[in-house]
Amino acid sequence: MAQLAFGLVAAAMLGSGLLAVRSRNLVHAVLWLAVSLIATAAAYVLLSAPFLAAMQILLYTGGVVTLMLFGVMLTDHRHDGGAPGRLSNDSAPQRPWLGAFFAAALFGVVAAALYQTPLPVPAAALDASTARLGELVLGDHLVAFEAISVLLLAALLGAVALARKTDP
């Protein structure tokens, strides 16, 4: 049962991920990214992290993907080698063999490391109630939490400052 669920999730994540990086149509690519992210949310459920799954859908699929679609629409791709008349097209991938080599090499290194490293099989279940997670985040990791909140604020201010139309 668990293996089947893993297989489905893994196939969905990898398939949609591959389409997200290979699709020539950017809108499609962003939507395939959304699929991959939703599959990841399912993976979180299988890994007994329900709150994380909820956040994944809320933030990523709801926020990030929407933002990206806006980005695609706000920019003009006609001068970038895309097919004429198609606003959102990307041209052919550049140096695909280099990308493939680095991807394969990194995967190979990590896989080899995993093969060499004996890892125990985890316990069947993990009590991952939102209450405990909340206590942990606002208890042990309070400083990190506050730092992240400052970072988010700074990032959003920076994003506004960067994208704002400045005086000529």
């Binding site: 280099l98 680095f102 090499a105 990194l106 290194v109 990590v110 490391a113 060499q116």
Partner: peptide, 16 residues
């Protein structure tokens, strides 16, 4: 970007 990825690969190889 290629240089960054190459550096990442090197770090991974080194740490493994």
């Amino acid at each position: 970007l290629t240089a960054v990825v190459a550096g990442l690969l090197l770090l991974a190889v080194a740490s493994v």
